[in-house]
């Protein structure tokens, strides 16, 4: 066997691929569901925290900054492991899926809060003053004048950060969630052949390449004339 044949037999083995493809497809579905749940919860919580922070209540803001820094400092894998292995000791048992979802949602919340907050503070003070001077209240001003402008500036960093954190769904394999990587690893151990990993990589590409392209499109779409 030449080197290439050996490589192909290991990583591009058609028989193994056919056998484990269904598992990878299932894992793909699970990754998509997990990712969507993380994005929905993480971004909603991040935006909510940024809005609360803009109210300017000191003790509340310290609390927010503490939580945000905590989840930005901890490696996501540590947070997942803590929720999965640590919480049962506290009498609260989470499934691997729930632990991964909660952990990564909190991480995305932390990073997106910072990005939303930076966006809100980047909107000139004059925008607030113009709206408030016409009798608009704080929340309508935030919602109709400030956030639309803030969101436009936040979309590029937010897209990048969201993609980066969503890729961490692979970490859920550590807590026995059969998402793409989990399914691929299972395939490798049962089939004694790493081809499922190739399938896994392909699955990640199929999933994230369009997301990256979409991110690009959103970036240009949201650039507007000043």
């Amino acid at each position: 066997m030449t080197g290439w044949e050996r490589f192909a037999d290991s990583f591009l083995n058609a028989r193994v691929a056919a056998e484990y493809l269904p598992k990878i497809v299932e894992g793909f579905g699970l990754t998509v569901v997990l990712a969507l749940c993380i994005i929905a919860a993480g971004l909603a919580a991040g935006l909510a925290l940024a809005v609360v922070r803009s109210l300017g209540v000191r003790p509340l803001n310290w609390l927010i900054i503490f939580a945000v820094d905590l989840f930005r400092a901890l490696p996501p894998l540590v947070v997942i492991a803590l929720f999965y292995f640590g919480l049962p000791a506290a009498g609260l048992s989470l499934s691997g899926f729930a632990a991964a979802w909660l952990a990564l949602s909190l991480v995305l919340m932390a990073f997106s809060e910072e990005i939303f907050w930076a966006g809100i503070t980047a909107v000139p003070k004059g925008q607030w003053e113009a709206a408030r001077s016409t009798g608009l209240g704080f929340l309508p001003t935030l919602r109709l004048v400030v956030l639309p402008q803030a969101l436009r500036i936040t979309i590029p960093p937010l897209t990048n950060r969201t993609i980066a954190i969503t890729k961490n769904t692979a970490l859920a394999s550590v807590v026995a969630v059969p998402e793409i990587l989990g399914a691929a690893q299972a395939g490798v151990s049962f089939g004694f052949n790493p081809t499922p990993l190739t399938l896994g990589a392909a699955a990640y590409l199929v999933l994230f390449l369009p997301v990256v392209v979409l991110g690009r499109w959103i970036e240009t779409r949201f650039a507007w004339k000043r």
Binding site: G126, Q127, A130, S133, T134, G135, W224, K225
Partner: peptide, 20 residues
């Protein structure tokens, strides 16, 4: 204050139009 401000129009040096 929001009701009161309806009766007081203000124009700023830097216009402060909503760009979006």
């Amino acid at each position: 204050i929001n009701r009161a401000r309806q009766r007081i129009g203000m124009v700023f040096q830097s216009f402060n139009l909503y760009p979006h």
